[in-house]
Structures are given as structure tokens and as C-alpha cells.
Write a protein that binds this DNA or RNA. Structure first.
Lengths: 254, 254
DNA sequence: CGCGGAATTGAAAATACTCAAAATTAGTGG
DNA sequence: CCACTAATTTTGAGTATTTTCAATTCCGCG
């Protein structure tokens, strides 16, 4: 009886009922189970909840939702955005496969930001209370979890540097180079990729307007540093973009 | 014998050789031991290293320093600043008593930012490796540690919102209101306090120039919202400042 | 084919910056 | 304790970058 249910689930449309398995997941080298041995991975597998599909523009969680789970992205892309009482919104990050969502919520019992899918995506639900139990038994897991939280702190500090100190052109170069290296780390092309987010989202994230992003794309294109076709990007001069991002070279208007 | 050593230490000049004691520390309600019972506090006390004094303008740690300890501020103020390869610097936060320094370093084996004392200060050294051992035995401690890391993430997201979306005047109001509430939480006046950092530091933190900060202070003073004398500030219209910070009211030039 | 959202482009305006000079404050040594 | 020097802060004027507002254009989708 129960095996039949399981069979149905495997072969049917309702993939979201499937239990996730870290061991088989292509992201396990980047994700929470990084560095765990097979035995510990299976213990982690046992606590991991169902997979959950999130359609494009749908929210994984919203600000104020009660906090139960962290989420590891299996595939797809998300944006997280923070809002203040007067309604101003700031996109605080774009997340891709292997990255963890929800760590901001641990301090309270509810989420402090919205997480919205930029395309049809899938996540693993990680019940935080059960993860905490595991921490006591798998020190490696705890250590890696701390690394991931700490990395998030460092990442945000880099964004603060970007927003506080850089001109539009440098911000945009940093953005492109960052995407490029993250795709490279996942085995994708570092020079050809798709922007999963709108120009408006990019602008909001970088503290610029959509018009500025549009102008920057046009200028970079005119300089021959990249090609753009809708959301498809090809970096033609990645070294130049890296130099711009690092602040070692500057844009000269023509 | 050992009690005499203790006596000498207490009465002598070399306070930095003293072992810290969370139980007696006025900050223990805000700091790492928050919520622990007496028994667990004493276990925490046992792993806490020496106290360390840091003179004004001296560094507690520098970017690239190997990571061994977290630091809890006993008294005094610090700034943390992040630098990119091309030398641009961003102050990512100002920290005061009861706050934890060094959490950004957990992801690697070295610090990712500088921590500089804004005045003569004292911290408790918390050897992170030993803290990790304790986590396995005191779940409450682990939980609170996670809260503190998560709070840091949320705090940084608020700064990103500030830097990405707010005008100079609102940024500065947010800055003042934030200091005000943190002093209030520590039992100090929420309206009268000293700015421990230079105008330049404030400007860097807020993504503005020193001239802008100076002009903002003059404008706020002229509006009758505050008084300033050197670094001494009195908030005269805290409600107005809160409204500016929240974005529910805007500045009208006169 | 036409509608609507998204993106691009241009021109004018605003905000904050840069540069420069003056004023104030802090630090140092006599 | 005072005087001198260096550092920080304030203020002004002109400038630059990015925004705002407006008008098209592009593209996906029914």
C-alpha cells in the first residue's frame, strides 16, 4: 500500500511530494552537506523535509511568515528583498542553486524579508528545529553551517561597500563579474548566461534606477565589452569588466 | 595562595590579565550569555580567555589576521571596516558594549575586516574553537549564538536598504535614531549622547562625504531638531527624527 | 494584429560631490 | 597653563553623476 503511494509519487506529476536526497543532489558539494561523509549525509537526509516547487514570481516565504525551515535551492533562482515600514524596498541578494535561504529569520520566529522565485524553481525544506538537533551529533555540519552564515555576513559587507562607495559603472561591473564567477563555480559558462532578473530588479539591488541600468548596458555594449540580447548576456571582455569591478580601471566616455 | 593571586589581580593595575566573568558583567543580558542559567554561565566563563584592552585608534584585529577568537565588547566603541583590493574602504558598522565582533571571520581562517577602537575599550576574548565545543553541551548557548549571527545579517540588510534607497537626510536620521535606541537599551539617555566616531567615519558609513554630514548637522540644528557641540549631541525632536528615519516625513528646505 | 509590460533613449532637474578656504578643535611640548 | 601646530570640521561655489519625467520602441502573448 505505502509502496504503491511511493511509486505513484515517483512517476507522477507531484514531484514536490518526493523526499530529497542530498547524496544524489548535484549541489551537495556547494550546499549544506559539504564535507560530510556518507553516513552523516544520510542522517541529514533523514531530517530533510519535502521538496517544494515555487513557480516564477511566487514567494517561498514573505516577511512576517513564521520561521520553520531553511531552504536549499535545488534549481532555479530567487531574489530576497527587505522592506521598511514606509514601503521602500531593497533587494538584498539574488540566490541560485546550492545556496541557502532563510538564515536571516533565525534571530526571531519570523522571516525578515521576502524570497521570490525569479523562475520556476525547486528547494529542499530543512526543518530548522531538527537541524539544530543534528548539530549536537555532527560537529562538521555545525561548522559548515556557521561558515555559510558567516559567508552571508561577508557577502553583505561587500554589497555595502558597493552601495556606499562605487559609481554606477563599477557597481554594474561588480554585479556581472559576480554572476559570472558563481556560474563558473556551478560548471556553467562564465561568459554566456541569462539574467534571470528584470532590469528593475538589478537597479534596485545596485541602488540605481532602471534607466541607469539600461544606459549602462548600452554603454558597455557600445564599448564592445559585452553583447546583450534581451536577458541573454555574453561577456566579451571579462578582463576589462573585472578591472572595472576591482576599481583598477575606469570608464572613459567616448 | 591562589586566592591571594586573585586579590592582587583585582587590586592591581594590570586589569587586562584578569579573567573575565560573565556572571558579574553588566552586559550579560545583551551579550552571548543571554538566557543561560548560572551553571551554564560558569561553564562559559571557564572557556573565556583574558580581557584585552584596546587603545583608541588601535586595532583589535585586521583584515587577514588569523581567526582565533570572537570578542565581546565590555566597554568602549569600535568600528569595523571592509576594504576591497583597490583600497576603497567602507565602514560596515559601529559596535558598542555587549556586541560581538569577529563573526564575519568564521567562514575562513582569517578576518575579512578591520576592527578599530573608537576610544579606549575593553573586550573579552572568546576562543572560538572552545566555544564550538561548548555548543554541543549547551543548546541554549548555540541557539543564542545563531540569533546573534542572524541579527547581524538582518542589521546589514537594513544598512543595504539605507544605502540603496535613502536620501542623505533620511540616512542621517536613521543613523541618529539607531544610536539613540541602542543607548536606551543599555540604560543610557536616548536623547543625550556622544558621537564616538568622526564626521568622516559617519560619512563613510552612510555612503556620504564628510561635507555632507557637516551640512546635515547644520541643517538639523537650524531646524531645531537637535543640538550639537563638537561630538556631544542632544536630540530635541526625537519624534521628528524618527519620522524622517521611517520615511513618513520629509525635509522641507526653508 | 493589437495590447500591455518592459526596456530604451533623451532632456531637464536634483542631489550630493569636489575643490577651496576659513574656522574650530585637539594634541603637544615648553 | 598656555601657545603653537596639526587635524578636523564648517561653509561656499561650481560641477558631476544620477534621477526624474516623458516619449518611444521592443517584444511576448492572446
Amino acid at each position: 500500500m505505502s509502496s504503491q503511494v511511493s511509486y505513484v509519487a515517483h512517476s507522477a506529476l507531484n514531484v514536490s511530494a518526493l523526499k530529497a536526497s542530498c547524496a544524489n543532489c548535484s549541489m551537495h558539494q556547494l550546499c549544506l552537506p559539504m564535507g560530510l561523509d556518507d553516513n552523516d549525509i544520510s542522517r541529514l537526509d533523514q531530517i530533510i523535509g519535502r521538496r517544494r516547487r515555487v513557480a516564477r514570481d511566487e514567494s517561498l516565504y514573505r516577511m512576517g511568515d513564521s520561521f520553520q525551515n531553511l531552504y536549499a535551492i535545488r534549481f532555479g533562482h530567487f531574489k530576497t528583498s527587505h522592506m521598511n515600514p514606509s514601503g521602500e524596498q531593497q533587494i538584498t541578494g539574488f540566490q541560485m542553486a546550492g545556496e541557502l535561504l532563510g538564515m536571516d529569520a533565525i534571530s526571531g520566529d519570523h522571516h525578515h524579508c521576502d524570497a521570490i522565485a525569479l523562475e520556476d524553481s525547486e528547494v529542499c525544506e530543512i526543518p530548522f528545529a531538527r537541524l539544530e538537533e543534528l548539530f549536537g551529533h555532527i560537529p562538521t555540519l555545525l561548522r559548515h553551517f556557521h561558515r555559510m552564515m558567516s559567508q552571508e555576513i561577508t557577502r553583505e559587507q561587500s554589497v555595502m561597500l558597493l552601495l556606499g562607495n562605487m559609481r554606477a559603472e563599477q557597481r554594474f561591473a561588480v554585479f556581472l563579474v559576480n554572476l559570472s564567477s558563481r556560474y563558473a563555480a556551478r560548471g556553467y559558462s562564465s561568459t554566456n548566461f541569462q539574467l534571470r532578473m528584470s532590469r528593475e530588479d538589478i537597479g534596485n539591488y545596485l541602488g540605481l534606477t532602471i534607466e541607469s541600468i539600461s544606459r549602462l548596458l548600452s554603454r558597455f555594449k557600445k564599448q564592445g565589452w559585452l553583447k546583450v540580447d534581451k536577458r541573454e548576456v555574453e561577456l566579451i571582455a571579462p578582463a576589462k569588466l573585472k578591472a572595472l569591478a576591482a576599481g583598477t580601471e575606469h570608464y572613459e566616455p567616448i
